[in-house]
């Protein structure tokens, strides 16, 4: 049985400018110990989907319109705040892009680290302190015994992210949701942090949902990848297949526009136009207006994810009907 099974999640924001369909029918599942990547550009709904799972959507204006998120037999979307608090921070943990805004600047690192253990009654104060120090050493903070008495502002960006990881993993959760955890970091520090998450994942046999806009990071880090566009998953499959056999024009175009893969001196490949306005309902495929392969049917029929190969799903009508094949 899957560790987490999300089906048909719809999260809308009711704003004065209209209803923003941030997540519009998203389903995925993740197994124990697996790493699932969610990639997409800003506004594609990748973060909102995960925040919905954790009950972190501000309501109002946000509203979960429909969906089910089965985590060990319990539907996260139906739980009360108190029930959710038993799971959040204990069995499902989350780390964010900017560690400075998610650490409390008034509290010493130690007090923040032991909080989840005390809150969930997993240790007494003495035991929690010991565990906190162990954890800080595990995430590679030199001089942990001294640094545990310091405040967040005394740490560098990379070190803060290590503290965040220590705090998230101190309860040994089954699932870690990492929302762009390395986006704000320099490349050499990013490499260190990715390596750290990976080794902690292996030690704890933990599942990771890795949200990123960076296809390069996802390629090296994830077992499976969901590509999101305009609030929907447009392609889902094993990482290798996503990169070697793209089965949705958006995924293909996204990969082609990465400078790293293009010959120098030539014009970079670009996707024309802008992502659609999420307040306006789209008839047909949301990507059709920017898609070079779009046919008349694409702007008429709403596509759904369909299996196009073993373990590989695409929401492109033309790929599903074998009308086009996409090169990597």
């Amino acid at each position: 049985m899957a560790l987490l099974k999300l089906s048909d999640l719809k999260t809308f924001f009711h704003t004065r400018a209209g209803v923003v369909r941030a997540v519009n029918g998203v389903s995925f599942s993740i197994e124990k110990g697996e790493t699932l990547g969610i990639v997409g550009e800003s506004g594609s709904g990748k973060s909102v989907a995960c925040y919905s799972l954790m009950g972190l959507i501000p309501k109002p204006p946000g509203k979960i319109e429909s969906g089910q998120a089965l985590f060990d037999g319990e539907d996260l979307l139906q739980l009360s705040e108190a029930q959710l608090n038993r799971i959040r921070g204990r069995r499902i943990a989350m780390i964010f892009q900017d560690p400075m805004t998610s650490l409390n600047p008034y509290l010493r690192i130690e007090d923040q680290l032991i909080e989840p253990l005390l809150l969930h009654g997993l240790a007494d104060k003495h035991g929690a302190r010991k565990k906190a120090l162990e954890m800080l050493e595990k995430v590679g903070i030199p001089g942990a015994a001294r640094r545990i008495r310091m405040y967040p502002h005394e740490f560098s960006g990379g070190m803060r992210q290590r503290v965040m990881i220590a705090m998230a993993l101190i309860t040994e959760p089954d699932l870690l949701i990492a929302d762009e955890p390395t986006t704000a970091l320099d490349v050499t520090v990013q490499a260190q942090i990715l390596e750290l998450i990976k080794s902690m994942q292996q030690q704890l046999n933990m599942a990771v949902i890795f949200i990123s806009h960076d296809l390069g990071v996802v390629a090296g880090f994830c077992d499976r990848v969901n590509v999101m566009y305009s609030g929907q998953i447009v392609e889902s499959g094993h990482t290798d297949a996503i990169f070697t056999h793209p089965s949705h024009p958006y995924n293909q175009a996204l990969q082609r526009s990465i400078p790293a893969l293009q010959a120098k001196g030539q014009e970079l490949f670009t996707i024309e136009g802008q992502p659609p306005d999420l307040t306006r309902p789209v008839s047909g495929c949301a990507f059709a207006a920017r898609c070079v392969h779009a046919s008349h049917a694409c702007s008429q029929t709403s596509p759904h994810l369909e299996c196009v190969d073993e373990g590989h799903w695409s929401a492109c009508l033309r790929v599903q009907q074998h009308e086009i094949t996409l090169a990597p």
């Binding site: 490349v187 050499t188 990013q190 960076d214 390069g216 390629a219 090296g220």
Partner: peptide
Amino acid sequence: QALVSAVPIPDPSRER
């Protein structure tokens, strides 16, 4: 060298 080697490559087989 460290900087270049830390740049993620969007190609799973090369990246691994």
